[in-house]
Design a protein around this nucleic acid. Structure first.
Lengths: 337, 337
DNA sequence: GGATCTTTCTAAACCGTTTTAGCTGATCCT
DNA sequence: AGGATCAGCTAAAACGGTTTAGAAAGATCC
């Protein structure tokens, strides 16, 4: 009585066998309504909650999802995506009695170890983010037999479902907006090109440029940090021909870029237009408020969690397509000087 | 052979009993060097890794720590503390074979449920952040018998160790800097007052004001979001006497405040000095670069994880005191107009 | 009215570790 | 030489659930 009650205590109190209690608790047929009520009463009186460890051992399910992040700590310092993303995941899985197991690793080698450990009875499935070119993880995960969901689709055919958010419409709208304003030299500051979404945004940008009959603009590969954004901006601004607009792959780099522009005595948007990506919380409150492309990290987290949950429930899951990011017009863009 | 090898497979291959294998793997005495080598060889050949679930069940340890965050999703959107904090925790616990279990909950009621669930065989200990006034969690946790570490000390005497970072020196240095520049009306925009660290910073600010013989300045309670920071700033600026400097409880509010000041045609730092808190990644790259007080979230995470690990190892842990946040002078402060 | 199905429930096996109790044979001590 | 001690190992009992095989009791069928 002093220590935590077990299923045997419940069985004893309800005058049934352990098996009956297990059936009753898992809503399985084979228990009469009366007995079920008696069992639930005993559960309630004893304050019984099943031990996850025992459940995990006998049913070989862990009731946890895994998320492995391969990032250097400094890249996490101001990350605007993961906190809301994780919150979205949590909101969906917590009511289902599951929890999220997090792993931060510094590089790809550690990443592989982390997934292997997670596969070894720590989680029932994983959400794979930051898909890279020739990403080894889908193969690794199917090899490990670990159910998974990816954020965006890595390559054409894989037995892993993807939860996709198309960034083409957002980037296109942004580019059309700039081109409509009369911009002809539109630069792009992206993230590391190994990431698929970085490359995708870059392609949309290049396509829009070409479609408007404009010459290919300068592309700079930065690292998603404020420091990187400032550095890339400085580089774009150091020699003519100067771009009249810059599209960034996230708001953090855009904000830092905007500051860099100001520091050089140029004015946003008068001398240079700036567009970010993600619509982070601060962006609406910068000076000037940042025009950006909104992505719904929270909703993405929810969708990914739902897809993984459905997969574990045995449903045949296909790719999920979320509403594309929308272009949010604020005040960091104007006609070129 | 097809499925994952168990400890019995290893025992069979090495020609010993399961017990011997367990002893060898856990570096326990009672196994000769020769036998140990034979066992380790078998482990290697079979690629054996012990099942966490079975381990958890028989040793009643879960090899995971828990972290429960009671925040509304919008407060997480731009949070600069948790990503590096969690990264710090991870860096310490991963080599020890442990992982982090995360829970996001919307309010205090859900919080209690979350801790109770975690206590029930899901984690070996928790890190408690965002300590509030009359926080019910320390009592809850000691009641649940769940080892814990708090970030900063809630009240005087509790059997829970705290990992503390003193913000007094940083705030004091900031205030001395402002007062030295000649400021006499220094406002403070804090976070929700139920948080102990909010109250602590507010007290330091008030004390410094009093120590300099200045009248108590206006305090505004905001919510740590950019929107809240902008709103509070607007309120401070709407009626004279205007403050000549504002100290914010985080960089996000400070950044939004700075933009709000600019929007009103005032110039930072010429017309108004601004100081933030935390030194988030963007702050050094704002225009002007934000003067702030640096807190080491990553180091805090490491220290908290170490303390919890030590506690689980049976060590008598006392409070840990981390280096205080340092004042980082940049360009958002100047003499009052 | 007996054979056959269902339904409801029990007993026991099982999941893969850790841990305890106890069994060996060698060594030490007097 | 013979008992105590010890390291090195084995066998088996936990840990707390799930799951399977099968028993007991009613309901159904011809």
């Amino acid at each position: 009585m002093a220590s935590k009650p077990t299923i045997s205590d419940v069985a004893l109190r309800a005058g049934v066998s352990k098996g009956a209690v297990s059936f009753a608790l898992n809503n399985r047929p084979g228990v009469s309504a009366g007995t079920r009520a008696r069992i639930l009463l005993a559960v309630d009186e004893l304050g019984f909650t099943p031990s996850r460890a025992a459940r995990a051992l006998s049913s070989s399910r862990t009731f946890a999802f895994g998320l492995v992040l391969a990032r250097r700590p400094e890249m996490l310092r101001a990350d605007a995506f993961f906190p809301p993303f994780i919150a979205g995941v949590e909101q969906v899985i917590a009511p289902a009695g599951m929890s999220l197991m997090l792993r931060f690793v510094p590089d790809a080698a550690a990443e592989k170890v982390a997934y292997t450990e997670l596969a070894n009875g720590r989680v029932d499935g994983v959400i794979v983010t930051d898909i890279r070119r020739r990403d080894p993880r889908p193969a690794l995960l199917t090899g490990l037999g670990l159910p998974a969901v990816t954020l965006n689709r890595p390559t054409k055919r894989l037995p892993i479902a993807a939860v996709c958010m198309d960034d083409a419409p957002g980037v296109l709208a942004a580019m059309e907006h700039l081109i409509g304003l009369g911009h002809r030299r539109i630069a792009h500051v992206g993230g590391p090109r190994r990431y698929l979404h970085v490359d995708s945004r870059r392609r949309q940008w290049a396509t829009a440029l070409a479609a408007a009959g404009l010459p290919p603009g300068p592309f700079l590969e930065a690292d998603f940090t404020a420091a990187g954004g400032a550095r890339a901006t400085a580089q774009l601004l150091q020699a003519p021909p100067l771009p009249t607009a810059i599209l960034y792959a996230n708001d953090l780099m855009a904000a830092a870029g905007m500051a860099e522009v100001s520091r050089r005595g140029l004015r946003v948007p008068h001398d240079l237009s700036i567009i970010g990506f993600d619509d982070s919380e601060l962006s609406a409150y910068l000076h000037p408020p940042l025009t950006t492309i909104r992505t719904d990290a929270f909703g993405w987290g929810q969708a990914a969690a739902k897809a993984l949950l459905a997969q574990l429930a045995g449903e045949q899951v296909t790719d999920v397509h979320l509403p594309a990011g929308v272009f949010v017009l604020r005040e960091s863009t104007a006609s070129p000087p």
